[in-house]
Simulated assay, not measured.
Amino acid sequence: MAIKITPSTEAILDVLQEGRATPGYLQEQTGLSRNTVQNQLRSLLSGDCVQYVHEPTGLYELVDDPRVGDGNGI
Rank of each mutant, 00 (worst) to 15 (best):
A21N: 02
T36I: 05
R34F: 13
G24I: 01
E61N: 08
L41V: 10
E10N: 14
K4I: 08
S43C: 08
I74S: 03
G47I: 14
E10F: 14
Q38A: 09
Q17P: 00
D65C: 10
A21P: 00
T22P: 05
Q27R: 12
I3F: 12
G71F: 06
P66K: 10
R42K: 15
G73W: 00
Y25W: 05
E18G: 11
I5Q: 07
I12A: 05
Q17Y: 05
C49I: 01
L13C: 05
G69N: 10
S46E: 15
G47M: 11
L62E: 03
N72Q: 12
L41C: 14
L45Q: 02
I3N: 15
R20Y: 02
L44K: 07
D48E: 10
G73T: 12
P66D: 13
A2S: 14
L62K: 07
N39K: 15
L26Q: 13
Q51R: 15
D64E: 08
V63S: 02
L32R: 10
L62Y: 04
L13M: 13
T30H: 07
Q51N: 02
Q17C: 12
Q38R: 12
D70C: 14
R34L: 09
T57W: 02
S46Q: 15
V53N: 03
T36C: 05
Y52G: 00
V37E: 08
R42V: 03
T30K: 07
G58L: 06
L41A: 04
C49V: 05
I3P: 09
Y52P: 06
N72S: 15
Y52D: 12
C49M: 01
G47P: 05
L26N: 06
L41Y: 09
Q29Y: 05
V50C: 05
L59K: 03
P66C: 12
N39E: 10
N72C: 13
A2H: 14
T22S: 12
I12E: 11
I3Y: 07
E18P: 01
S8V: 00
D65P: 07
Q17F: 01
S43W: 00
L32M: 04
S43L: 10
V15P: 13
R20F: 05
G69C: 01
E28G: 15
P23W: 11
P66L: 07
G31Q: 04
S33N: 14
A21K: 09
Y25R: 13
